[in-house]
Amino acid sequence: MKFLCTGIELADASSRGFEIDDQKLFAVRRNGQAYVYINRCPHRGVGLEWTPNQFLDPSNSLIQCATHGALFLIEDGECVSGPCAGQSLTRVACSEDAKGIWVSL
């Protein structure tokens, strides 16, 4: 397991980008639970954010790809709207303890 960040560094209803071992990732926290995905849209293979750490739609309820506006569920990464509907982001196994959030790459 690799250390991602402390728990306090990922506030509820927020997102953050990371790079570990040349792998671009992002994390989202919703209702206290952290979710981590590879930062690559299944449609074009591009990163999702248009500005650093901005992976969510304006309501902070869905992950949004800045390139073509695809929308993904935070809980499982499924695309529910846009050019890659039915496809999913690649989830990264993660856990959280008193020290912070850890990922398994």
Rank of each mutant, 00 (worst) to 15 (best):
L56R: 03
G17F: 00
L4Y: 06
L4P: 13
L73F: 08
I38P: 02
C79F: 10
Q33N: 14
P52S: 11
Q87G: 02
S59Q: 12
S14A: 09
F26Y: 14
A98M: 13
G77V: 02
Q87D: 08
F3C: 07
D21L: 12
L89F: 00
S14L: 05
A85L: 15
Q33K: 11
E96R: 02
V92N: 06
E78V: 11
S61E: 13
L48M: 05
G82N: 05
Q64I: 08
D21T: 03
L62A: 11
Q23R: 05
H43N: 00
W102L: 11
A66F: 09
E19G: 06
S81Y: 10
A66N: 12
E49L: 12
K24A: 13
S61L: 14
D22Y: 10
G86I: 00
A98G: 13
L48E: 04
C94N: 01
S81K: 14
I8R: 13
E96H: 06
A27C: 00
A66P: 06
L10K: 07
A85I: 15
R29F: 06
E49D: 15
H68N: 02
H68G: 01
T6L: 02
T67W: 11
I74N: 05
W50L: 04
V103M: 11
G100M: 12
R30N: 10
A13V: 09
L105C: 12
K99I: 13
R40S: 07
G69T: 07
F3I: 04
A85F: 14
V28F: 03
A11K: 03
W102H: 09
K99M: 15
L89N: 01
D22V: 09
L105P: 07
E19R: 04
Q54L: 11
V103H: 15
T6D: 07
Q54R: 12
G7W: 05
L89Y: 13
S88T: 10
H68S: 00
K2G: 06
R16N: 07
G45L: 00
W50H: 10
R44K: 13
L56P: 04
N53D: 07
G47P: 13
D22H: 10
W50S: 03
S59T: 12
K24E: 12
W50N: 11
F26V: 08
G77T: 04
L62N: 11
T90Y: 02
P42E: 03
H43P: 00
M1G: 02
S81C: 15
L62P: 02
A11N: 10
I101Y: 15
A85W: 15
L4C: 07
R40H: 06
G17C: 10
W102I: 01
S95C: 14
C65K: 00
F18K: 06
I63W: 02
A93Q: 15
D21E: 09
